[in-house]
Nucleic acid binder design. Sequence first.
DNA 1: CTGAAAGCGCTTACAG
DNA 2: CTGAAAGCGCTTACAG
Lengths: 340, 340
Amino acid sequence: MKKNVTAKDIAQFCGVSQATVSYVINNRTDQKISEETRQKILDAIEELHYYPNASARNMRTRNCTSIGIVCARDYSRQAFLNALTGISRFLSRLDYTITIFNEENLRPEENSAPQYVKSYYSNLIDGLIYISNHDHLAFIRPAVEHQIPYVVLCMDGVFSRHSPTPHAFDRVLEECAEFCRRRGFCDIRYFSIDNAGLFVNNKYPVFREALHKIAPDCQLRHIICPAKNRELAEMQLFLADYMQNSQFDLAISQNYDIGLCLQREILRKHFSIPQPIRNLFLNDVNFYDMTYPSVSGIAIPYDEMGEYAAELILAILEGAEDSFSYREFKCHLILRESTL
Amino acid sequence: MKKNVTAKDIAQFCGVSQATVSYVINNRTDQKISEETRQKILDAIEELHYYPNASARNMRTRNCTSIGIVCARDYSRQAFLNALTGISRFLSRLDYTITIFNEENLRPEENSAPQYVKSYYSNLIDGLIYISNHDHLAFIRPAVEHQIPYVVLCMDGVFSRHSPTPHAFDRVLEECAEFCRRRGFCDIRYFSIDNAGLFVNNKYPVFREALHKIAPDCQLRHIICPAKNRELAEMQLFLADYMQNSQFDLAISQNYDIGLCLQREILRKHFSIPQPIRNLFLNDVNFYDMTYPSVSGIAIPYDEMGEYAAELILAILEGAEDSFSYREFKCHLILRESTL
DNA sequence: CTGAAAGCGCTTACAG
DNA sequence: CTGAAAGCGCTTACAG
């Protein structure tokens, strides 16, 4: 059993009231406490190893001091971890706790609300950070319906219900289109995964538009690779078959798994740098610069986005979003050996 | 402001006492409640959207219904995520919450206890799951000192204070040694990262012993690659230099970053499959089978380990470890193109 | 079977 | 400047 030193103990020990102890703990400037009393209480806290009971405090203040994180099922684990790092850095400074919700645990048979809705009503979390992938609206619907404060983090940046829509990734797609123009890539194939009808993270329409504007002579084709549950074997089979008789300038994909499968087929046919078919991953993955050939990709500041998302959700919770200054993020195209 | 339906509201609505509501909510079998009353209460809960306040309950029962996860700084992100998946699957079924502690947030200047210790005393977490790397003892010291219930998850499996020490990874290292013997690899180099004095996840001694026993004729050398903060450039420089004039049979490494850098140097010199120098990563990483050449490695059941770790910590918290049946895990050597 | 009441450990008006 | 007291929303002996 844990020992249980309470504020009452501290008060008795110091010969003051519990209220005074509470004021000191919370650094209340609206209450005047003599420096002597303050120090005495602080010393007692130290000496008796007093830690305020969070449940009691939360109950009284009707806070939870915890933010929920819910990550889209198909989101890149990389993105999740990087965002988590930033979120955690910000929140732990303020003694906020992070509660992880695993969407995989959703039992779809039951058409019930996700677990985090229940957690919100049970006063376990004050608000949500969604790490979202493509269909943001469908993803955040439970929060909207139940009026749960939320913030969304995605490849384009971070947004709330009132903030402007971010476009960091859309911007970098223009940079990619410009790159194609400059390099004279005329025949481009864009590979997407069709996970049983779900097009994970599909930026094809945005890219097509950018390319059409910036390099109108470029030919672009959308190749859809079936891969139920992201099954590697299925992807490999499809790509091996497709690549057998295909020749083009540049392969583009959005996920490291299909990107690596493509890379495999390209190199297997004829290993060389520059590659016979160039390859560009539209994502940020940690091993891009370590493989051989190293792979061109996008740098996405997920870590900073996470920190900012945490800051924003807290502002919303404090009702201070009005005076919050929104921030845009920047993604960068990073060229490596796969597009030499 | 959130709406606040309380047990009292339900009681009034149904014309029963709060106690009865509480009994129904908690499925107390030691209290006899008429089926009629029970149903009436359940309906009211549904209708009024009542969710019990977790803080109030936790305060009363002196529980937290939350488990803290603390992950070693240098641990593979892969391992962390896979373990997290399993942990989350188990805990969310029991309405336990997961609280993530980020060791990076530790400010080492302050020689104070880690944040999770404070969280434990503040009744935010009931216990800890450590995801540990190499020096388990140093890592878990705060839990031992402060008598916080804990469980450790590592490459070898899962263990508690009272459980036997697991050896899943040690076992698979013997499998690797046996593989070396069978293939007649006589000149093996084992590459470790020296991160400013910290040897991340170093299994060299165990492997050496296994090799000595199983393939005594094999020559093994330990190559230590300096890489402060896992700086890629530093690693690359060292390896490029080292590999220039080196010839041997098999490269072994434990981390995907140094493993890929090695792979790079090997292939850069002469790309071929079979590789002029074989390469084996002693770890489990998601893209092993997607690169070209695909990379031989170890399958580690982190997901299952996580589920089991969650089960074990709950047993410990309930004081039921005595009757808990400990489980061993198995790792597997997976051979791919890099060792053809 | 059910209800009145105490108490978990805080914070916060309010009175002095 | 400080203290007595109410109350946050539960659970749990205890009495009936």
